[in-house]
Amino acid sequence: MKALVYFTVIIGLVPVQSVLLSHLSVWGVRPDLGFVAVCLIGLIAGELDGLLVGLALGWAMSLFSGQDLISSAILKGAVGYIAGLAGQQVVYLSPVVLVMGLLVVSCVVGLVTPLALTLSSQQDLWWAAWTVVLPQACLDAVIGGAIYWLLWSRLNIEQVMSESRM
C-alpha cells in the first residue's frame, strides 16, 4: 500500500510540476514540489523511505527536464535521507519550525545544484542565489508548510510518524 502511495506521488507530481506550476511561478521561478514531497516523506516515514522515494522521484523528474539524472536523483535522495534523520531527532515539530527547516535545506540544495550541473558561465553562483535559489526556497517553504499544516491540523502527526517509522 505504501509503495502504491509513493508510486502515485511520483506519477502525479511530474504532470503537476511541468504543466500546472508554470502558472504559479513568481518572477519565473517555480516551487519544487518534488523537494517538498521528499522532505515530508522522509520526515514522516523515515530515512529509508525518504532516500528511496527521493532517488526514484529524482530519476523520474530528470526524464522530463534538462537536468541530468545524477544530480537530480542523488540530491533528492540525500534530501529524503537527511529529512528522515532529522525526523528521528524531534518529538514535536510545529509548522513554523518546518517552514524554517525547508527554507534552509532548499537554500543549501539550491546552492549545491549549480555546482553539480556545471552550468553556463553566465549562470554563476551569485546569479543563482538571487534569481533561483532564494525565491524557490521561499516558495518551497510556504507550500511545504501549508501541506504540513493541513496534515498537522487534521491528523495526529506524531502518532503517524511513530507508526510509519516502526
Partner: peptide, 11 residues
Amino acid sequence: IGRDIGNWYKT
C-alpha cells in the same frame, strides 16, 4: 505538453 520541471534550464 509541458515546461521544464526545474528552474535551472529553459526547456
